[in-house]
Amino acid sequence: MQGNRVIGEAAIRAGCRFYAGYPITPQNELTEYMADNMRRAKGGTFIQAESEIAAINMVLGAAAAGARAMTSSSSPGISLKQEGISSLAADELPAVIVNIMRGGPGLGNILPSQGDYFQATRGGGHGDYRTIVLAPASVQELADLTMDAFDLADRYRNPVLILADGMMGQMMEPVEFSDPSSRQYPECYILKGKGKGKSKFIRGLILDAIRMEEHNWKLYRKYQVITQKEVRFETFWTDDAEILIVAYGTAARIAKGAIKRSREMGIPVGLIRPITLWPFPMEVIRSFAERVENFLVFEMNTGQMVEDVQLALGGIGKVQFYGRPGGVIPTPAELAKVIAYQARKK
């Protein structure tokens, strides 16, 4: 199945019952899949919104009304959604947002790119908040992480971002869908009309400084828990590695191919692949630094995650960077040359 469609199917299986989106390449197949299939799901709503701004705000309403809700877009559209994502974070509402990244800045192009790392991992919109960011590297993982995204969003009542790129969205690979878990979302957070109980409101506006500060610290403590509990990563050929590549998503796939070639040439190189970009696997990377000196960060941009790797290492070890922005997809052979160069220099 095609990546974009897999996200849609996984979402519906995970109980997503509200989707609003606005067309943008390279994620259109996801919007179209939802148009076709959301109505198949009992109580499911699909809306082609008038803009990305409208779509994310519809999701805000649907999430508050108790639905598992999702929207998707690609880079320029994700910029427009930031106001709404910030509101979701402020209101502590669960929602899943999919970004099938393309080349930027501006309109850029429609080719695969990883230029939105900073935006995704630093909250993205205004204010002091974070979103959980999942970075799949295969179509199978698109399915698995989409399902997990809904659970994480509910558990932490926080927006969760799936950060993939045009290649993940467009390509087809075999996929198997796992059984969804049953939803655990406390009724008390759902707006349904006050019924016989007390009325409630959901809001982000807190004019009093002390109370706003309290809210900020409360969110902060939540983010601390997420940081402790939800870090995910994969390691590949790291046991005897003397050079470690750090890459995610499509870049990590390419890195694996490059590592195989390099190993054939006798270069001991391995991969750390962050699956959660926020929370970032800081401690894992740091612990590798006790043994490995050389790190090579590889991204399809001009260098964003490399800052987190440097932060994780805190000055120990050597960090090199190799990147191709703008929609260029480097080949494993190209990266293998970079690795060989690093190995010689070392």
Binding site: G61, A64, A65, G193, K194, F201, G204
Partner: peptide, 25 residues
């Protein structure tokens, strides 16, 4: 002021937010 359930909307997005609620409920 209102003793009813309410959901704050970002500036201008009231109709989109209301759409989301109404479609679910």
């Amino acid at each position: 002021y209102f003793d009813i359930d309410m959901l704050e909307s970002p500036h201008g997005r009231g109709c989109a937010v209301a759409t989301g609620i109404k479609r679910v409920l």
